[in-house]
Write a protein that binds this DNA or RNA. Structure first.
Lengths: 147, 147
DNA sequence: GTTCAACCTATTTTCTTGATAGGTTTTTCG
DNA sequence: CGAAAAACCTATCAAGAAAATAGGTTGAAC
């Protein structure tokens, strides 16, 4: 599966934080409750987002998490990459993967690279506010069939 | 991973069969040797392709596999779907998956549906001869940036 | 009737992912 | 100060999927 549970949850967390950002720092507990996701599991996910700098947390009473930038500065591509680990459609395109023996002769490598790039182009255009509102470019529009 | 080893191998098998189709029925043994893939493992993959009608096999001496149609009638989308089981980017879009509780309220469902569709649009355009030759629409071209 | 090759079923092994558990630090506030 | 709230950290377990292997049966050709 290209997008794991971690990735899906991360999107939901980011949407939740965007929707509730006027309340300052949001405790993970609240997010977990609203999203009906185990708080413990969410912890491991938001930890990735935090380490990557997409959100910041402060500890102690009154603490919680918040976005580090304006919502429109996040793309679905970035969020998914961080939480999911990779968005490579095949193992051999994963970052840090050992170069495959067949690298030079592989006829399908280019196909996978293009899938990868297509995803980046599409998801890189979709911003957090668009995810919040549900209004974003459709696949058909993106493919230029309707423009 | 969106495309499993099965999917990748299936693409290679189809390319191999296309390249060698003037030799009539091609024994799996030959494909396995050329592609450097365990014959036993290939068996399980070509079995999927055969059941789905993409290739046909005949038994006995002089037997083997061959394509059932003209190469240009196969798309990467079809091949990958058959061998990979699904091309759904998330579990909840898999064929036969139980409808998720959050179906109505899920803000990200539409995103995943569009990823799915984008993939179908792109891979549905790429034919077997294009895979053989390595000449097909790039992601950039597809996204309309260069047209 | 032997050989070749598809076809079938089951099992094992390996790996990733999902999920849980149990703690420690840091901060606020009474 | 000390209790509560919250992030943060590390380890481990559980489940499932994917990769790969094993050992056969059936059918066709020579």
């Amino acid at each position: 599966m290209l997008i794991s549970t971690k990735g899906r949850y991360a999107i939901r967390v980011m949407i939740d934080l965007a929707e509730n950002r006027q309340s300052g720092y949001v405790p993970l507990r609240d997010v977990a409750e609203r999203q009906q996701i185990s708080e413990k599991y969410l912890e491991s996910i938001i930890s990735l987002l935090s380490k990557a700098g997409l959100v910041e947390g402060i500890r102690g009473k009154g603490g919680g998490y918040r976005l580090t930038r304006e919502p429109e500065e996040y793309t679905a591509w970035e969020i998914l990459n961080v939480a999911n680990g990779t968005m490579a459609p095949v193992a051999c395109l994963k970052d840090g993967a050992p170069e495959c023996d067949r690298h030079d002769i592989c006829k399908s490598l280019s196909l996978y690279e293009n899938i990868y790039e297509l995803m980046e182009l599409y998801l890189g255009e979709i911003t957090l506010p668009q995810l919040v509102s549900g209004e974003f470019t459709t696949a058909e529009e993106f493919a230029g069939k309707k423009l």
